[in-house]
Structures are given as C-alpha cells and as structure tokens.
C-alpha cells in the first residue's frame, strides 16, 4: 500500500479504529450528484442547524463510538457496542468538521422523483449524521485517511497506478478535451421530430440499447429496426439514433427498462412522435496520450470497455462504458484477440483514435443476439 498521510496506521484502518463522540442527531437533505465545495459547506451547515438545539435549550446527546475502517463507518452505542448506524465507506459522500462538530454525509439511493425537472437534475438523498467530539478534526482526518487508503486499493484492483492519479494536473486545458458528441448534440440540425403512423396495437418495430455510462446524452439508442415495421417504414430513423422523447415525454436519464416501457405504452396509438438526435452507429474517441507510460484510464474485457477512470484522458476523449472497440488508429479489431487489443492500446500514444459502438448494438448487428422489437 502507498503511504497515505493521516493520524492512523494503515493496518489499524483495515481492521477499524474507534473514536469516542456524542451523537446529536440525523437529518436528510436532497443533493446533486457531485456538488461543488460551496454547496457541500452549505449542506453541512444546514445539517448542523437542523440538528442542534436552539441556544438556551438542552442539547440531547448520546455517547457513541465511531468505528472507522477502509470498508465501513459504524456508529456504536458506547456501552453496548450495538450498531446504531452502519454505512459502507463508498456510500459516504463526504465529511465536514466545524470546531468540535463532525458531520457525516451518507448517500442513499437515487431519490425517485415524479417531477421531471428533478429527475433531470438527478437528486440524491443524503443522510446527515451530526456528532460532537473535542477531537472532531482528528476523527475527520482519520476518515479522510480511510477514504484515501480505500481509494488507492480500488485503483490498484482496477489496474491503475495510484501514483499516476492526482499527481498530474487534474483538468487539462479545454483544448485537450475531445468530444465529438458535444458538437454533435449541440447542433440543432441533428435534432428532429419523427412522426410515425401505425396501426392500433402494432409495435413501433425498434430495438433499444443504452447509450452507456459516460455518454453526454444518456438515453435509449436505436439498435435495430424491424424490417417492414412502422419505424422503418417512416424512413427517417436509423441505427445509432438517440431517442430523447416520445410524444413529448423525455426519456433522457431514464433507465433502459423505463424507456422500453414508454415505447410499449404507445402500442395502442395510431400516430407517435419520437424526438431524436441523429447519430451514426459508430462514434470516434480521440485520446491524447503524451507517452505510452501514461495511463489510458479505462479497462477492456474482450474488446468491450468495462470501466472508466473519471477525469482520465479516455473519458475526456469520449470513451464510454459498455462500448465495443471496432477500430484502433484505423485498424479493425473486431476479430482481434483480447491480448492483441490490449497490446495495441498500451503501445499507442500521441493521438489515439478509437472507434466504438454500443456492445449490444454490435451483438445485434453481427447476429450474436436476436433483437427484441418493441
């Protein structure tokens, strides 16, 4: 393990360290996914304001032990050692210390909102636990150290050298950001409304796949069109098109199953309007890698991108999870063994051009999978 500065021994953090504190209470807040530091500060202050008793009133407090390890954070009753709260470390979004007060922010599942504008903003429920401890700062430092140790373990497990992360400048100049998608999606000429006439009870005749995590426009993608079906007959749809709305209801950010359900729901209609962004089935990512020692920032399994380092050169270049690599620097790799693809990628430097398509689309186009038409 690399040395991570902090008040604890790494070995101790793996097993777990206990700190005495007084539990003041908990509250819940709604939060964006990765709020800026100023928002986090306001959230921590808000949590303290809600939990703290007003001046002049007695503050209810429960003596507890905070158990901190690289896997979990638990709040234990001081005497009984019974767990009051138990959170996996990766669900702790952040911690705040304000003088003798410590605030722990645990992310809960995505708040399912029925209001479309909130769904677009992807609000998360945050559970905020507030504690009082004379050494709140020390506890915060120990939790910060546990974050760093767990993070470096995670990077190693994913084949990324932790010394390469964070040591180089985080965000390079916008000039180094390639994202063909950004130009494409912002060009209104690529967006259109497609009207499809059909018989009542007839399906649209489209197969959908996910655009993939990391996509700038997370929504359903047309993977196939049923021959002779209403979608194909209208002549305005092609494989790769993003479906952003159906009869005016947005599909952006919804899980694939929800997009499919929305399309099934219009089976009884005789006319349907799809809002689409016309996209080619294959996308190009351009990774600027100064030398072949620099981490590419993604993992490949059998030609499919299975994970992506946030902020890495691959993500900035437009690479996304769930896509199959079709070409590397103009060379087709569809029939290339995994080991050779890895070799090609590790050798590549300067400007690496990678052409990809959603793996599910690829499987449908090559007949490895049968399309399910909606």
């Amino acid at each position: 393990l690399p040395h991570v500065p902090g008040p604890c021994d790494h070995e101790d953090l793996l097993d777990g360290v206990l700190f005495g504190a007084k539990y003041l209470g908990s509250t819940q807040l709604l939060s964006e996914r990765n709020p800026p530091p100023s928002t986090r500060m306001a959230q921590a202050q808000e949590a303290v304001d809600r939990v703290k008793a007003p001046d002049g009133e007695t503050q209810p407090m429960t003596p507890v032990d905070l158990f901190v390890s690289t896997k979990r954070i638990k709040v234990l009753m001081a005497n009984a050692q019974e767990a009051l709260m138990d959170h996996a470390l990766q669900t702790i979004s952040y911690i705040a210390d304000i003088g003798p007060v410590l605030v722990l922010m645990a992310r809960r599942r995505l708040a399912r909102s029925t209001r479309p504008q909130e769904r677009e903003r992807r609000l998360y429920k945050m559970l905020c636990h507030v504690f009082h401890a004379e050494d709140a700062q020390l506890i915060a430092q120990a939790i910060g150290q546990a974050f760093a140790v767990a993070y470096s373990q995670f990077l190693r497990e994913n084949g990324i050298d932790p010394s390469q992360v964070g040591s180089r400048p985080r965000a390079t100049s916008p000039g180094h950001l390639h994202n063909g998608d950004l130009d494409h999606f912002s060009n209104s000429e690529n967006c259109r409304e497609v009207h499809i006439e059909k018989r009542r009870g007839e399906g649209l005749g489209v197969a959908l796949v996910e655009s993939g995590w990391g996509s700038l426009l997370p929504t359903a993608v047309i993977a196939n069109l049923l021959h002779g079906g209403p979608a194909e007959r209208c002549g305005e749809l092609s494989i790769g098109d993003r479906v952003t709305a159906i009869n005016g209801a947005s599909l952006v950010g919804l899980p694939l199953a929800a997009c499919q359900a929305a399309i099934r729901e219009v089976k009884s209609h005789t006319a349907v309007t799809l809002s689409i962004v016309h996209c080619p089935p294959v996308t190009t990512a351009i990774i600027r890698r100064l030398h072949s020692r620099e981490q590419l920032g993604f993992c490949v399994e059998d030609g499919v991108i299975c994970s992506l380092l946030r902020g890495g050169i691959a993500e900035r270049g437009g690479v996304r999870v769930g896509h199959r690599i079709i070409e590397i620097n103009g060379q087709s790799v569809v029939a290339t063994p995994h080991a050779r693809i890895v070799e090609l990628l590790t050798e590549a430097h300067d400007e690496v051009h990678i052409r990809t398509m959603p793996a599910a689309t690829y499987r449908l186009l090559t007949g490895q999978e049968q399309p399910v038409y909606l």
Binding site: R33, N34, P37, R40, M41, A44, Q45, H87, A88, L89, Q90, T91, I92, S93, Y94, I95, A96, D97, I98, G99, A106, R107, R108, R109, L110, R122, Y124, K125, Q137, A140, Q141, I143, G144, F147, A148, A150, Y151, F154, W213, L309, R310, G311
Partner: peptide
C-alpha cells in the same frame, strides 16, 4: 470556527443511482 470538507474520492467513480437504503 473553520469548516473543513473532506470528499470521498470514490464518489466520482460510483455509478449513478448507487447508494444505501
């Protein structure tokens, strides 16, 4: 007193929608 925020670096790797109930 000063307010210090320590963000979990894992946060940026978490797939959307993850968390604990």
């Amino acid at each position: 007193s000063a307010l210090t925020i320590t963000v979990n670096p894992m946060e940026k790797h978490e797939a959307p929608g993850r968390g604990e109930e």
